[in-house]
Design a protein around this nucleic acid. Structure first.
Lengths: 193, 193
DNA sequence: CCGGCACGGCACGGGCCGTGCCGATCTAAC
DNA sequence: GTTAGATCGGCACGGCCCGTGCCGTGCCGG
């Protein structure tokens, strides 16, 4: 049966990604080596090189195999509340254990490897942005966002503040901070008469 | 004379950092090795290890040895124009040749090495933020920014959008984009009656 | 029964790590 | 002037990991 062959192959792939995440959590991404992954997964190095072209792409697949189905914007009619909900969930997921060091290492690797950067953008950022943009459009049509406001820029402002904290200042992102970001982005810096 | 000793030492330090930048520009940070730097600088490996604890910290010093004196906010009385000027200068400096790949690699390394992250934050981010915050306070006192607006958040919104583009989506940051960011941050997303 | 295919295991040359040791050079103290 | 100390470049080492061959095995499809 071909099913058996495919199933065996999928099992191996999953075992390799599992071993990758385990080792990365134990010793850090810097210490991660193909040899160690192969040994941990009970697999020959060829079996890894046959599936992934580099350590970065393997790590990308491993990290993105996590469940992100619940990072979807609901539509309760309140754009601020719905956005806040997803921002909190995303922050807790990506900057809390166990994913914080993994996601941080992934973004770090993306700065060194363009293929990892492209994969992350296409398979994670893009996916979240599309969903977010759809929700923003609905809100704009309902008059909850200024009709001439650039929605792509809204995403950059909101996401940017969180990523800036995560990647540059590396300070904790609290719920209070998220509230302040939302409030600031909606009210704007300009003085109100 | 002690001057001679200190001068020789400083010369070596500078030669090592120079060789580091040269090699990083030629072959990329990933290919950078202490051995190659030592050979290029005409120096023993010990001389490098005596000065820096890791490749990351050497690279941090090398990159930060660039001139950033001109990234200072002027005060012409127009906060938008002054901010725009620095945002453009900073973007051209950090995302254009020859510093783009170097600064990108530095941020990538900062995700793997906490000491590099701390050094970058303390010696670059903090320096820029302090200057920016001072200029924002003046503007707020003059009524160009809403009196109750969180100025730290203003920096996160403006800087965040640029860093998000640079590190996550890796799309070009044009002057038009900077203008749109400024405009969006000042007007806010909320509908205006 | 046999052909092919993916596999685990092993070994290889090569590169770089971080660390010792050596001899040369220069400084500072006596 | 001589000597003790510090710093240097050069060299070599064991160790780790890279990416790639090769071999023998077991499982599937024909």
């Amino acid at each position: 049966m071909t099913d058996h062959r495919a199933a065996r192959s999928a099992d191996r792939t999953e075992a390799i990604m599992r071993a990758t995440l385990d080792l990365a959590l134990e010793a850090g991404y810097a210490k991660l080596s193909i040899e160690a992954v192969a040994t941990r997964a009970g697999v020959g190095k060829h079996t890894i090189y046959r599936r992934w072209p580099s350590k970065g792409m393997l790590f990308l697949d491993a990290v993105l195999s996590m469940n992100t189905e619940d990072l979807v914007h609901r539509d309760t009619g309140d754009i601020v509340a719905d956005t806040r909900e997803v921002m909190i969930k995303a922050t807790e997921l990506l900057t809390g254990p166990p994913w914080a060091p993994l996601y941080r290492a992934l973004l770090g690797e993306a700065q060194h490897d363009p293929k990892v950067a492209a994969g992350h953008k296409e398979r994670f950022i893009q996916r979240q942005s599309d969903d977010f943009l759809r929700r923003l459009q609905t809100a704009q049509e309902q008059g909850q966002i200024a009709s001439d406001f650039d929605l792509e820029l809204a995403m950059d402002l909101l996401s940017g503040a969180l990523y800036y904290r995560f990647l540059c200042t590396q300070e904790p992102i609290t719920r209070d901070y998220i509230d302040r970001v939302l409030n600031a982005a909606f009210t704007g810096m300009a003085p109100r008469p």
